[in-house]
Design a protein around this nucleic acid. Structure first.
Lengths: 239, 239
DNA sequence: GAGTGGTCTAGACCACCCT
DNA sequence: GGGTGGTCTAGACCACTCC
């Protein structure tokens, strides 16, 4: 059709596709018509259609696989209570998550994200443990834990298949308090690879500081979860 | 230069620009060289540069203004404690926010977002109040409140410049408990317009259910905040 | 007018997948 | 081979801002 008013063809296409997804005309898990077909239908170039399809990927609506097609994402989200610190296997079980852990790397790094300032994270090198936590076989959280480098080697070996909290607890460390900072953010590169999500995909972050009876010993970390994989609930009593 | 291995020119450009921003070579608030200049420097087309610059906008790094240029975003984020329900002026003051409210619309709508299912929101038509809450003159939260339609007209008039909680409290409504669902999400269209953020921009959401002494009377709502404007902290005692 | 970013397009090439 | 999405490019046009 002719008569577009402004230079927003890709927006029109995007909104129409969005409408069809919401209306169920393109059902969850189904493949969309190809960009060429849609271009024909909308009377725009295929490039403009691709632009619209691409913009719907960071929104969690679509997912394109080169050579296969563009699909409507199936949403399945876990809800967990904020009270569970999620640093122990028991916590995870209690939520019915059937958790599994996959160790990604063990490195020495500084904490660079300024978001940690609120938690008063130290500036020096720390032991950095990166892992993926899955629930029912589906990756749900990407966890980066920072620990003092004074940690015993024997404990470090256990990080491969245990929650950091569990490993430390079994070696006599008592946790006294947890401080959390919850925010949203675009996915880090690690998270992008782990969850196969595009640049800019919103993730729910949970930066934590675990204090212990030893005031010089605190554990820091951050978990990232794609926004369509995890949400938190909290109950507050009346003031 | 020749010899690119893969079709990821725009990624290379994006990462290099990202590096320069992080390194302070492009300082916060400053304008970047024009796309044409950058294209010359990187040896790619200006379109590819524009693509890279565009992809850094949903990441909160850059901000382009047509006719003016592309700027490095200045980050300034408010941190608030989750315990404050933020439905009252007093709460906001306690955080030092110097809050102001701008009523956007009063409509009758159904709650359609499935994320409200967890809060067991009703299916019927409700009174929908949309407003923007600013802190120190900067918009921080976009709030959508859903109330039973049985509400007194006199109270509704007060929504224009008061927090919903305050208006109800002054008319004798006692709140008993709050249930929250916290998640991340791409910005809604309302939020996009309010905060001048692009499609897909990550926002921190806080869906709430306020119960009252009258079991049939509950207030529902959701606040959206751009990820670089607001974060929440929580303190948890040891288990 | 000159410069800016934003958009749309056609054309070309690539990597991938399935048959 | 023929389909898919992804990328890069040149060229053109637009709206906007500043001088």
């Amino acid at each position: 059709m002719a008569g577009q008013n402004a230079s927003v063809l890709h927006q029109n296409v995007r909104q129409e596709i969005m409408r069809r997804v919401n209306a169920g005309e393109y059902a969850a898990g189904q493949v969309l018509p190809s960009a060429a077909v849609l271009a024909e239908e909308f009377g725009v170039s295929s490039i403009t259609v691709k632009r619209a399809l691409r913009d719907l990927q960071p929104a969690g609506v679509l997912r394109s696989v080169p050579g296969l097609g563009t699909f409507v994402r199936e949403q399945r989200r876990f809800i967990r209570d904020l009270d569970y610190s999620l640093t122990s296997h028991a916590d995870a079980l209690r939520l019915g998550l059937n958790p599994s852990i996959s160790l990604q790397s063990l490195t020495n790094e500084k904490i660079v994200d300024p978001a940690f300032d609120v938690l008063e994270a130290p500036a020096g090198l720390m032991l950095c443990v990166r892992k993926v936590i899955s629930a029912d076989g589906m990756p749900v959280m990407y966890d980066t834990t920072y620990l003092p480098r004074s940690i015993d080697e024997a404990i470090i070996d256990e990080f491969a298949d245990k929650f950091v909290g569990d490993a430390l607890r079994e070696h006599g460390t008592e946790f006294t308090a947890t401080k959390l900072l919850i925010d949203a953010a675009p996915a880090s590169e690690h998270a992008q690879q782990t969850f196969s999500i595009p640049n800019g995909y919103p993730v729910l972050r949970r930066l934590y500081r675990l204090n212990t009876t030893d005031k010089a010993f605190s554990v820091f970390g951050v978990t990232e979860s794609p926004f369509d994989r995890l949400a938190c609930t909290v109950e507050l009593a009346a003031r």
